[in-house]
Amino acid sequence: MAGRKPLPTQLKLVKGTARPHRMNPAEPQPVVAVPDPPEHLDAEDRAVFATMAQMLARHGVMTELDAAALGRYVVIRRRWLEAEAEVKRRGPVVKTSNDNIIQNPFLAVANKCLAQMGQIESEFGLTPSSRSRIRTASPAATRDPFEDFLNRGSTA
Rank of each mutant, 00 (worst) to 15 (best):
A108Q: 06
A33I: 02
R58W: 12
R22D: 12
F106Q: 03
F149E: 04
P8F: 12
T127W: 05
I120A: 02
H59R: 10
D42N: 15
A137Y: 12
A2F: 15
R72C: 02
V93K: 08
R133C: 12
M62R: 02
V74Q: 00
R89L: 14
A33L: 12
R135E: 09
F106S: 10
P38N: 03
M117T: 04
F146V: 10
F49Y: 06
A68I: 12
A43H: 05
C113S: 05
C113P: 00
L150P: 01
S132C: 11
R131E: 08
F124S: 00
G16A: 09
V14I: 08
E44G: 10
V94G: 02
S132Y: 15
A110I: 00
W80C: 09
D148L: 15
A53K: 00
V75W: 00
R46S: 04
I102F: 01
Q54P: 01
I101M: 05
H59I: 02
A68T: 14
R133I: 04
T96H: 09
V94M: 04
M117C: 14
A2R: 07
E123W: 10
T51G: 10
K15E: 11
R58G: 14
L150Q: 07
C113L: 07
L126V: 07
E123V: 08
P28L: 08
N111E: 15
A67F: 10
V94H: 01
G91S: 04
Q54E: 15
P35F: 06
T51P: 05
V34H: 06
K88N: 13
P6L: 07
